[in-house]
Amino acid sequence: MNFAPSPEVVQNNVLATLNGQDQRWRAYANTFPTGYGVPSGAMGQWLNGFPAMVWPIEQLRPLAGWLWQQGYPAALQQLNTRLQEIYKARDVYISMYNNQVQHEANLAGIMRGAVAFNTTQIMAATNRQNVVFQNWLTDMFDINENRCRDCHNGIGIPGGGYCYACAKRRGWVW
């Protein structure tokens, strides 16, 4: 007595299992994170779960191959068709992930540029304020210590001013 199931029964079981795995895959595919602001890390996590979804389907390949040898090609044909669709979908998801990574890199570059520009502007403004303060401080010392405002030599005039040489150089005297 032979209690082994007939190839037709095995094919029906394989096709039913394939349909169940296909529904499981489609449910997983519907959870792919998309939309504005979805980080590439979430997409990468989803892609890391991809092999676990495909592995049970791939496990049907030897049995489908055996059925094909027995003259029942439907299981292998459907398996190959579905795996081809799944791997095409995976390629699309990988492309979406790569695009998001590129987008995030571009945004990071823009932010780095903005931070560098702001830092440069702040440093320039700070330097300008320091120069203005140093000039003011020097002027105050010149005024308080009766010195020339150009060469900073003592001139003995209360409130400071300009020595004869500096005034001549400016064209104020001959």
Results as ranks from 00 to 15, higher is better:
Q121P: 00
D91Y: 05
P73W: 02
T120D: 05
L83W: 09
N106Y: 09
P56K: 04
E104N: 05
L63W: 05
A89G: 11
D91E: 15
Q69L: 08
N80T: 14
Q121E: 05
T120E: 06
N80C: 04
T119K: 03
M53G: 01
P51K: 04
W55A: 15
G49V: 05
M96C: 12
P62Q: 03
P73L: 01
W66K: 13
A105S: 06
L76H: 11
V101P: 09
W68D: 15
M53P: 08
L107E: 13
Q121N: 11
M53R: 08
M111G: 01
Q102N: 07
Y72A: 04
P56H: 06
N48V: 01
V92E: 15
I122C: 00
V54E: 12
L67M: 03
L79A: 14
L76E: 14
L60M: 15
L83N: 08
A108R: 08
G113P: 01
G109D: 06
L107D: 06
L83F: 07
L107Q: 14
E85W: 03
Y87F: 12
K88N: 07
A116W: 07
W66H: 12
M123F: 00
V101Q: 11
Y93V: 09
E58H: 09
W68R: 14
Q70S: 13
V115F: 07
G65M: 12
R82S: 01
V92F: 13
K88Q: 11
R90A: 08
Q70N: 11
Q77M: 05
M53F: 06
H103N: 11
N98W: 02
G109C: 00
N127A: 10
E104P: 10
A124E: 11
Y72D: 04
I94M: 12
Q69V: 02
A114D: 04
Q102T: 09
P62N: 04
D91V: 01
Y87T: 05
Q84N: 12
Q100C: 06
P62M: 02
N99H: 08
Y87E: 15
H103M: 07
R61L: 09
P51D: 08
M111K: 10
P56Y: 06
A75Y: 08
R112C: 00
T120L: 09
L76S: 10
G71K: 04
Q102W: 01
L63I: 15
